[in-house]
């Protein structure tokens, strides 16, 4: 089997776009079902009352990671053809910090902004307008920060390459971290629920 399909040109670019729509619909549907279109639920992650964001994100990451690992190990998918941007350490870390602040202030991240907007949340609409302005600001200042944008580049940024361990070992380690994370999340939630009930 030649996967990923589009890079192997098994499917046409038109069909690929059709799947883009389907994948988007499924993604939006599930995000909304999980409650991720609601700023109060999202912000619960940071007030430590509702850790849905963490649980959903980590379960998704672990699912994909395991899926890709086994498909690749059995020769069903060629991971080299999956596009993934290289690492640029400092821009990415700084971007993460700013995005985190924006997340806590807005109550949405960019993806969930779309979800919130689709369900009629006016604050999500405001956040969406903010996203557009923010992108425009970046475009406007790009000339000044271009050097910074391309700085601290790391091309081979896979866990197994950076830490010099086997692919399977890194999968194993991430699974262990996820399990510990899930248990911790349940403990934090049950504690916060206990305190609000008193």
């Amino acid at each position: 089997m030649n996967m990923p399909l589009a890079p192997y040109e098994v499917i046409s670019s038109g069909l690929n776009l059709f799947f883009a729509l389907i994948i988007g619909i499924a993604f939006g549907f599930i995000l909304e079902r999980g409650g991720l279109g609601n700023a109060k639920k999202l912000i619960g992650q940071f007030t430590l009352t509702d850790l849905t964001v963490f649980k959903v994100m980590f379960t998704a990451i672990v699912t994909v990671m395991i899926g890709l690992f086994f498909l690749s190990a059995f020769g069903l998918a060629n991971l080299e053809l999956i596009s993934n941007s290289d690492t640029y350490w400092i821009p990415q870390i700084l971007g993460g910090l700013i995005l985190g602040v924006g997340f806590a202030v807005a109550g949405y991240c960019p993806g969930t902004t779309i979800v919130g907007m689709a369900t009629g949340k006016l604050d999500a609409l405001a956040s969406f307008l903010g996203l557009i302005f923010g992108s425009l600001v970046f475009v406007a200042i790009f000339d000044w920060i271009e050097d910074f944008y391309w700085s601290t580049h790391l091309k081979n940024d896979h866990f197994s390459q950076v830490f010099a361990i086997e692919f399977g070992t890194s999968v194993f380690i991430v699974i262990c971290i996820a399990i510990l994370g899930f248990i911790t999340a349940e403990i934090i939630e049950s504690k916060s629920r206990g305190s609000t009930q008193k």
């Binding site: 700023a39 949405y108 960019p110 923010g134």
Partner: peptide, 24 residues
């Protein structure tokens, strides 16, 4: 609240471009 969401969105829009992607 709307003003806050706008500012938060602005920060995220800027940050997502800097980091080459957002939470998703």
């Amino acid at each position: 609240r709307l003003r806050q969401a706008l500012i938060g969105g602005l920060l995220m829009g800027l940050a997502a471009r800097l980091a080459r992607g957002c939470t998703s």
